[in-house]
Design a protein around this nucleic acid. Structure first.
Lengths: 141, 141
DNA sequence: CCTACATGCTCTAGTGACTAGAGGATCAAG
DNA sequence: CTTGATCCTCTAGTCACTAGAGCATGTAGG
């Protein structure tokens, strides 16, 4: 019966206490075993999972995506077809995201450069964003 | 008092009709003037503003950020410091995300490769993302 | 052993940024 | 003149949390 309390788990993973409980509620974490006095206990595996979830969320994956990613891990001798499909579609999504983040990066850099000139009168963020908005498909920065 | 209806405004800016009304509610757009029959009217300036808002949202700026950016626009003789700060912090975050996504990308690629050979047993997405999560400040890989 | 008080529990409600739907008015086309 | 699209307001739902109430339990100091 080893394991740490939800508070230490929160500290260890940078996921807040109520968020951990929320993840259990929505099934991203297995129902934690409890002490005699009904407190949740977390072992190293759960902490790893939590860190994974946190990071994936930071990367913008939705809870459902994360559920899928977690599923990939826990089916080690399944036929590969399905796993491959999930991984593949995630890869596509990840690549898409990298693309648009790179576009955003260069645009933000451009904004900052423009601002360096010192006066908003010459600052073109608004102009830039508005114009850019017209070419809906970011045809490569 | 020319102007287009909310429907055409939506089409012209790719912002959905209810979202336009929502932006008015929360003060990102001025209250639109109305026709005799109470319908909202939008002129070119409002369309521009809508396009700006949409794009800024796509870039991940929060409504409050956008409010700040729009406010700055109307004080043109001010220095750019604040705009610069907003953009800069977004840039940092964006770079951080790109890093992580690249790590995830190569892990997914590795998985797919592994799958091709028929086994998923050595899938390490969790490990990879989890470890990556620990170096909060990405001290250059 | 007793008292603080921190931490845990459950439950409900609030947040941001929309999105969907009900129920009704108005406009444009045939 | 009717039909269907579009508009109006209003309420409620979504996702992923986040905050708070109200109560139980654990831990440290005196």
């Amino acid at each position: 019966m080893t394991g740490v309390t939800i508070g230490s788990a929160a500290k260890a993973t940078s996921v807040k206490v109520p968020t951990i409980r929320y993840y259990e509620d929505v099934g991203l974490l297995p129902r934690a075993p409890r002490t005699d006095s009904n407190r949740r206990l977390y072992g190293p595996d759960e902490l790893a999972r939590l860190r994974f979830i946190r990071h994936a969320r930071e990367l913008g994956f939705e809870v459902d995506d994360i559920r899928a990613l977690l599923a990939l891990q826990s089916e080690p001798q399944q036929t590969c077809t399905e796993v491959d499909a999930i991984a593949r579609s995630h890869l596509t999504e990840v690549e898409r995201r990298i693309e648009s983040l790179l576009a955003l990066k260069s645009e933000l850099e451009r904004m900052i450069k423009g601002c360096k000139r010192g006066r908003i009168a010459q600052c073109r963020i608004i102009e830039v964003l508005q114009n850019h908005a017209q070419c809906a498909h970011h045809p490569r920065g």
